[in-house]
C-alpha cells in the first residue's frame, strides 16, 4: 500500500517536471498523444505505446475504456466500445501499464472516469496505478469540488492529478483549478466533446496566454487538435499539445492493415506532430 512507501521512489510529479524542463531547454513543446487501452486489444496497445515513444512523444495519456463517457465524441466512444467488447478489464490495464512503463521512457498518465476510480476504491486504484509505474491521472468527470479524496491519495503516492480548465470556466475558477493541478494543467480548447476539428477555436491563443500569467504549472492544450499546423500554432504559446481522437482514429483502422504497416503509419503521423512542436 502507498502508506508504507512515500519516500521510496521519486515523485512522479517531479519526473513530469523534468520532462518539461528538458523540453524548455530544447526549445520545444510537449506532444502528448492519447491512446485507448485495449483497442483493438492489449498487445497492440503495447506496440502502439512503443511506437509513440519512438516517434518522440513527450508523454502519453492512456485512455481507460468506460461504458458511458459523456465527455467523448464518437471516435473515442467507439474505441472504448471496441476495447470493452474485446475484454478490457482494469486488471489488464494495470498489467499492460506495468509492461509499458518498463519498455518506454515517456511518462504515461491514465485518463480515467471517476466512476471507475470510485468503484475500485480511491486508495486501491491509486496504489495499483503507482505499482504499475503510471505517472498520474486525468479524470475528465471530476470537478474540483469533488476531488479532495483523490487529491490526497495522489499527493501521498507522489502521482500527478491533472485538472482541466475549459472555455466555460470563469476566470477565478480557472485560477483555483490551476492552483490544484499537479503535473500540468489541461486546457480544453473548445466547449464540447473530444474529436478532431478543422480550425483552432477563436480566442484559444489568448486564453492560454492569460492562463500563463496566472500559473507556473505547464499548460497543455487538447480537444480538437489533429494537424501539424494546429500543433505548431498551439506550441507557440503552450507547453504542449494533446492529440486524442486523431490518434485513436488510426486504431479503428488497425484491423485493416498488417500490424507493421499500421504502426509505421501511426509513427509517421505522430513524428510529424512532434516535429511541429519545435519552436
Amino acid at each position: 500500500m502507498s502508506a508504507s512507501a512515500p519516500a521510496a521512489s521519486p515523485s512522479k510529479v517531479s519526473v513530469l517536471a523534468d520532462v518539461f524542463t528538458t523540453l524548455r531547454t530544447q526549445g520545444r513543446a510537449a506532444l502528448a498523444p492519447f491512446v485507448t487501452a485495449g483497442d483493438p486489444e492489449m498487445e497492440t496497445t503495447l506496440a502502439v505505446l512503443e511506437s509513440l515513444d519512438r516517434a518522440g512523444a513527450s508523454l502519453c495519456e492512456l485512455g481507460v475504456p468506460y461504458s458511458d463517457p459523456i465527455a467523448d465524441g464518437p471516435v473515442i466512444q467507439s474505441s472504448y466500445t471496441r476495447a470493452l467488447a474485446a475484454g478490457f478489464t482494469l486488471e489488464r490495464l494495470f498489467e499492460l501499464s506495468r509492461q509499458a512503463t518498463q519498455r518506454v521512457k515517456m511518462p504515461i498518465l491514465a485518463m480515467a472516469s471517476y466512476s471507475l476510480i470510485y468503484r475500485r476504491g480511491i486508495d486501491r486504484f491509486v496504489a495499483d496505478a503507482k505499482a504499475a509505474g503510471l505517472t498520474g491521472f486525468v479524470v475528465p468527470d471530476l470537478p474540483i469540488e469533488e476531488s479532495d479524496q483523490l487529491d490526497a491519495a495522489c499527493r501521498q503516492a507522489g502521482l500527478a492529478l491533472v485538472r482541466l480548465v475549459t472555455p466555460t470556466t470563469p476566470p477565478e475558477r480557472a485560477e483555483a483549478i490551476a492552483r490544484k493541478s499537479t503535473g500540468f494543467l489541461y486546457c480544453v480548447s473548445v466547449a464540447g466533446v473530444t474529436g478532431a476539428r478543422t480550425d483552432l477555436p477563436a480566442g484559444l491563443i489568448e486564453r492560454v496566454q492569460w492562463l500563463r500569467t496566472k500559473t507556473d504549472v505547464p499548460i497543455l492544450v487538447g480537444f480538437g487538435i489533429s494537424s501539424p499546423e494546429q500543433a505548431r500554432a498551439v506550441a507557440a504559446v503552450a507547453d504542449g499539445v494533446i492529440v486524442g481522437s486523431a490518434v485513436v482514429r488510426h486504431l479503428a483502422d488497425a484491423a485493416n492493415h498488417p500490424r507493421e504497416a499500421f504502426l509505421r503509419g501511426l509513427e509517421g503521423y505522430v513524428g510529424d506532430l512532434v516535429a511541429a512542436t519545435a519552436r
Binding site: 459523456i70 468527470d141 470537478p143 469533488e146 472555455p167 470556466t169 475558477r173
Partner: peptide, 20 residues
C-alpha cells in the same frame, strides 16, 4: 449545498458543465 443526500448525489461532471 454540495447536492448531497447523505453520502449520495453530488456533481461529477466535466468541467465544461460546471458553470452551467
Amino acid at each position: 449545498t454540495l447536492g448531497r443526500f447523505g453520502r449520495f448525489g453530488g456533481r461529477y461532471v466535466p468541467e465544461t458543465l460546471s458553470a452551467a
